[in-house]
Amino acid sequence: MFKKTVALITIALLLTAAIAGCAGKSGGQQAGGQKFITIATGGTAGTYFPLGGALADIWNKNIKGVNATAQSTGASVANVNLLKDGKADVIFVQNDIAYYAANGTEMFKDNKYEDIKGLTTLYPETVQIVTLAGKNIKSVADLKGKKVAVGAAGSGAEANARQILEAAGITYNDISAQYLSFAEAANNLKDGNIDAAFLTAGFPTAAVQDIAASKKIELISLDDALVSKLMEKYPYYTKIVIPANTYSGVDHDVNTVAVKAMLAVSSKMDEETAYNLVKTMYANLDRLKAAHKAGEQIKQETGKEGMSIPLHPGAEKFFKEIGK
């Protein structure tokens, strides 16, 4: 009886080790014939979260054996760390942040992560500087001496805020920097606790719509000189216009800049899984469009535009098949 018990325990341990081994090779946890895919998104008031939920739905319904779930996170920088630590399998990330991680620069200095690979780029992530009417803030220069939400500490939005302020000759010493998430920034603007907020997301952004529903908002335009200086040092930015009436009460075009949202995975993910994920996503774009307006800008023909890191072999296979 004792020998039989020991044998059963040994078999159980071997099976556990085998499952763990498969998970490490695939980049997704495997158990009982299922492949568990964790999708790291962003805050619930941003764009990543609804799109991540739609992706999970697409993959669950169309890829046999996949069990995908989307989780709310601190977005780009936090997501890279989750991927690196094996706590996420697919991440939403800004293309500039992915580049910093792969090359060990900016917030990833001395913390290089070469295993991060691109799956596809998605849509422009627009830097939106939001304030309230009556604050008398018409330009970036007017932010001096103000309480400004610059994004969650160490986030992609925070890096964008810091770089734009730098291009305007402003440092955090010139403002009262508040490290707040999208949702926190919206609440604090409405309550009058801050004067302005930097948000980086596809527009229209739920957090901005939320503010505009109860307050008269203004979006700050970036002048050409500032944009040129910014793009000279940080080439991942592109010029973009937020059209008039995107948000309630903003009846004019707003000139600003954008980076690119993208999906990234670990080099440890197997080629077949990566290939199936990107192929299935592009075969079900209507679901992404239904989840968020930014989904309308996701197209397979532009899926490599702005790709700042090497593609995963599975993604590379897909784009070669479609001639891109």
Rank of each mutant, 00 (worst) to 15 (best):
E218C: 01
L132C: 11
I220Q: 08
A213E: 13
A167P: 03
G33S: 07
T246N: 02
E218K: 15
W59M: 02
I309R: 05
S181Y: 10
V148E: 07
K64M: 03
R287T: 15
L288F: 02
R162L: 12
G42Y: 09
Y282V: 00
S155E: 06
A261G: 15
D174Y: 05
V208M: 02
F203L: 14
A261I: 03
A261L: 10
T44V: 15
V140K: 10
M262I: 12
G52T: 04
L277Q: 03
G43C: 06
G202E: 04
A225H: 03
G46M: 01
T38C: 09
Y48P: 01
T302E: 10
L13S: 12
Y236E: 08
K299L: 08
E114N: 10
G43V: 03
K109R: 15
D224V: 03
N95V: 09
D270T: 06
P243K: 13
T302L: 10
C22K: 13
D57N: 14
L132E: 07
A161R: 07
G52R: 03
A274Q: 00
N67F: 04
I175Y: 07
L199C: 09
A315W: 00
D286W: 05
A186K: 05
T200W: 06
H252E: 13
D85Y: 09
V6E: 14
A283I: 01
A283D: 14
N255E: 11
Y99R: 08
F2Q: 13
Q209D: 14
A161K: 11
G65N: 15
I116W: 02
E321A: 06
P313R: 04
S26V: 15
F92Y: 11
D115L: 08
P124R: 05
K146H: 06
L8I: 13
V257P: 05
P50L: 05
T41V: 00
W59V: 08
A159W: 04
S214Y: 02
K3H: 11
N255V: 02
T131I: 08
A68P: 09
I298N: 02
K190D: 14
A23G: 15
L219S: 11
M307K: 02
A291M: 12
V257D: 06
V77R: 10
G314H: 05
M231G: 02
K25D: 07
A258F: 08
P124V: 03
A264Q: 05
N193W: 05
L288Q: 00
F49N: 15
D191S: 15
A157R: 00
L51W: 07
N276E: 11
G169Y: 11
Y237H: 07
T121W: 09
T171L: 01
F2S: 13
D253P: 06
G24V: 12
L15G: 05
K215L: 01
E114S: 13
G33T: 09
